[in-house]
Amino acid sequence: MRPLEGVTVVDFSRVLAGPLATQILADLGAEVIKIERPGGGDESRSFEPRLPGGESAYFFAFNRGKRSVTLNLRTPRGQEIARGLAARADVLVENFMPGTMDKHGLGYEALEALNPGLIYISSTGFGQSGPYADRKGYDTVFQALSGIMSLTGHPDTPPAKVGIPVSDMTSGLWIVISALTGLMERRNSGRGGHVDLAMMDVQASLLALAAARIFALDDDPGRTGTAHPGRVPSEAFRCADGGWLHISGSDQHWAPLCGVLGLHELAADPALASNEGRLAQRERVKAELAAAVAGWPRDQLAEALRAVDVPAGEVKSAREALSDPHIDARRMVGQFDHPTEGRFSALRTPLRLDETEYPEPGVPPLLGADTDAVLSGLLGLDEAELARLREEGTI
């Protein structure tokens, strides 16, 4: 039995942050009912990359294990059905602009009256209040506004986005945290609540170390490439075969590192024995390390350093990382069988509970595949009513 079995989630979210969160909840056992627009569904169904049968691998990445119900929220009957589903749910997730759900009669106050135990999570770009509440935004916009983009890249290059949609994905994790927190609070109080989760707030929270420098030193940090602003060495160095190796060490690693690289003069310098001293001579240390590392093949040096307990990591491509023997041993890549695209690979949710082996990743639903089953099973609609709703465009 998975931890969230018996929990019902009604998911009005689209694209990435919300769908990632509800996929995690589904992997943990919740029944997730994904509400989609008739005809097109979640807009990410049309995103690249596309598969031979026309489905989107982007959609597959964030919508596994859910049930898809098509519902036109602009119609009174569609809104009524949505309220009926929310009345039977434990958690609701939505990421519309503030006020949109209220216009449809689906805001928190309306649904709380029907279901006092409902945990209602509004995930928006800038939150339900504040001067930017009505602004629209995307992952890279939040990376820019939050300062993350200004911190990413090398000192002599323009700002860069992070290589993954970090704003969306971290916000998705906070939606999960909000849902689990709400379920625990409801167990104590018997009531649900409304979570106002802003992607911009999540990004600001990621600035903890940068903020520490500002608060402590009045130093607004900039781009440092792969180098750590407060630790030397902690940086990626180019190796003889063109590969890159990231080396990161504390004081106890300094002498073994110098020993492997033959940097005996650096090892003997008492001023460099502490991180504070190495910070003060960062450029000297960096130059000598770079010259020494350049004489080694990447993998050979990585093994030599790990043999003396110096932390080192080969800079791998995404393909290399996913085929790593450790990732394979941890079974992070699973598979599912899709009704139109066939066998397809997927990343597992990383949580392991008491060594429980969760089943293979769930299957992403075809658009509207579960509409009839959900509406008849949960709301008791008969075949004639479903046919009428389909004819009028409500489902």
Rank of each mutant, 00 (worst) to 15 (best):
M1T: 13
T157S: 14
G40P: 05
G192C: 02
D11M: 06
N275V: 08
E48A: 15
D251A: 13
G380R: 03
G107R: 05
M97N: 07
Q335F: 12
G334L: 03
P297N: 14
D156I: 12
G243W: 01
S13I: 09
R74F: 00
D219M: 10
V315W: 04
P131M: 08
P116R: 08
L111M: 04
E109A: 08
C239T: 15
G78T: 07
G380K: 01
S248A: 15
S150W: 10
E109K: 05
T224C: 03
G41L: 04
E235T: 09
G53S: 14
G259V: 11
A240V: 06
S178Y: 04
A268V: 13
L183V: 05
E276G: 13
E80P: 05
R77Q: 15
F62A: 12
D27L: 09
D219T: 06
L351G: 05
G225K: 13
I164M: 13
Y108S: 07
R343C: 00
P159W: 00
G147I: 13
D219N: 13
P256N: 06
F237R: 10
V285S: 04
G127H: 09
A210D: 01
A110T: 10
K286M: 09
E80L: 06
D196I: 01
D370H: 15
G163E: 03
A236I: 09
M199K: 02
M332K: 05
P364D: 07
G29P: 06
N115T: 06
R135S: 04
E360M: 11
R284L: 14
L257M: 09
L289Q: 02
I327R: 04
G277S: 08
S56V: 12
R213G: 11
L379R: 07
V91T: 14
P98A: 02
K161T: 13
E185W: 10
D382R: 12
A61L: 05
F59V: 07
R14Q: 15
G222Y: 04
Q252I: 11
L367H: 06
A321P: 03
S205E: 04
E5R: 10
M332P: 01
S205F: 07
E235Q: 15
A290E: 12
R331S: 13
R390Y: 07
L389A: 08
G125T: 06
N115S: 01
F12V: 04
A110R: 11
N63H: 08
S345A: 15
H264P: 05
E265D: 15
Y58N: 05
V91K: 00
P49R: 01
E43I: 12
R282P: 05
R186D: 11
R278C: 06
L73F: 11
R37Q: 14
E391N: 11
G230Q: 13
P49A: 02
A267L: 07
A268W: 07
A17L: 06
P325N: 03
V93G: 07
R390Q: 14
E385G: 07
G18D: 02
Q128F: 02
A291S: 12
E357T: 14
Q143I: 09
P256D: 03
G242R: 12
T371R: 13
